[in-house]
Simulated assay, not measured.
Amino acid sequence: MLGIIGPIFFMLLFIIGISVFLHFVPLGLWISAIAAGVRVGIVTLVGMRLRRVPPAKIVLPLIKANKAGLDVTVNQLEAHYLAGGNVDRVVDALIAAHRAEIPLPFQRAAAIDLAGRDVLEAVQMSVNPKVIETPIVAAVAKNGIELKVKARVTVRANIDRLVGGAGEATVLARVGEGIITTVGSSVDHKDVLANPDHISKTVLAKGLDAGTAFEILSIDIADIDVGRNIGAELMTDQAEAEKRIAQAKAEERRAMAVANEQEMKAYTQEMQAKVVEAQAEVPHALSIALREGRIGVMDYYNMNNITADTQMRETISKSGPAVANPSTESKEPRR
């Protein structure tokens, strides 16, 4: 029994040792690299295992790059992997750039990838430009008519400005600003409708791609719609506001007139009260004057006659001219 257990134990140890050796020494990748003509030492592969770098993610892209004729080393790929980059995507971008004859060194491709941009998509966009459609941009011409413009911007990735360059949102914002400026400087909206290419030429001449990660190839106006008459609406609103101001001022003047009228009525009533009070004192003053002999009886009668004559004249003036009584008119005798 003991004689059987010993060989089995040594066989298990041998199997475990072979498994550990094959884990740290990927012979399959080493043989594949040699077959592809890529020089990768066993020590290098073991070092990748110790540095916790999957050898397959380094060796396979290295083989791909070598077959494409690129000068890429193991240390470059491993350093990019340890920095958190996508090695396979960088190698694919380098191969695509090499095929399209676009100058793209490994350092720049790695920097673009580490910056968070898709370097392969950027290379593909350099070969095949991308069309970006702007949202509807509302602009108002000088005659007050609103125009709703939609444009298509054809851009190509600028490899040299991918690191630190602005993205698509900046390009769209600048194009929208250029459309608003161009339409706003037009005297009549009909000029814009007749020559929509004027917008494209004006906006394209402004150099809107400065500081961005793209190169603007063309700006094409896709659609123009006539919107509201903003000028007329503003004039209507202004007229309505002026009307309300005038009504408020008129109401203020009316209130002041009513207040003045009430004040005058109160003043008139006060004066009438004083007149009545003064008239009430007249008989008493006359009696005192008669008693003291300052006026005579005839003077008093003359004053009453004058007063009666004045009242009669006032009555006649109020009643108007006398109308002749038709009964008193003379009639002609019959013949």
Results as ranks from 00 to 15, higher is better:
Val90Phe: 03
Ile63Asp: 02
Ile58Val: 14
Lys243Glu: 09
Gly41Glu: 05
His189Met: 04
Ala241Asp: 11
Val163Gly: 09
Pro26Ser: 01
Ser19Thr: 07
Met256Ser: 05
Leu104Cys: 07
Gly47Lys: 10
Ala97Tyr: 11
Arg244Leu: 14
Gly28Met: 08
Ala166Gln: 13
Thr134Tyr: 00
Lys265Arg: 13
Val155Thr: 07
Asn158Gly: 06
Phe10Asn: 15
Ile136Ser: 02
Gly28Asp: 14
Val127Lys: 04
Asp118Val: 09
Val153Met: 03
Asp225His: 14
Ala169Lys: 05
Gly84Cys: 03
Asn304Thr: 07
Val276Arg: 08
Asn304Ile: 15
Gly144His: 00
Asp92Ser: 13
Gly37Val: 00
Ile31Phe: 13
Gly164Pro: 04
Ala308Cys: 01
Pro103Met: 04
Ala68Thr: 00
Glu252Val: 09
Ala250Lys: 07
Phe214Ala: 04
Gly47Cys: 02
Lys142Arg: 06
Gly41Met: 00
Ala166Met: 14
Val38Tyr: 01
Phe106Trp: 15
Ile136Ala: 06
Tyr300Gln: 06
Gly165Asn: 05
Val74Arg: 08
Val297Asn: 07
Ile42His: 11
Ala141Ser: 15
Gly207Phe: 11
Leu62Tyr: 01
Phe14Ser: 08
Lys190Gln: 13
Arg254Ser: 14
Ser327Phe: 09
Lys201Ala: 09
Thr268Ser: 09
Ile224His: 01
Val323Gln: 14
Asn128Tyr: 09
Ala35Cys: 04
Asn86Glu: 15
Pro196Met: 02
Asp299His: 04
Thr181Pro: 01
Thr315His: 07
Ala138His: 07
Phe21Asn: 07
Thr134Met: 00
Ala210Gly: 11
Ala97Met: 04
Gly165His: 05
Gly165Ser: 05
Gly296Ile: 00
Asp225Ser: 14
Val43Ala: 07
Gln76Ala: 08
Arg228Asp: 15
His284Glu: 12
Ala115Asp: 11
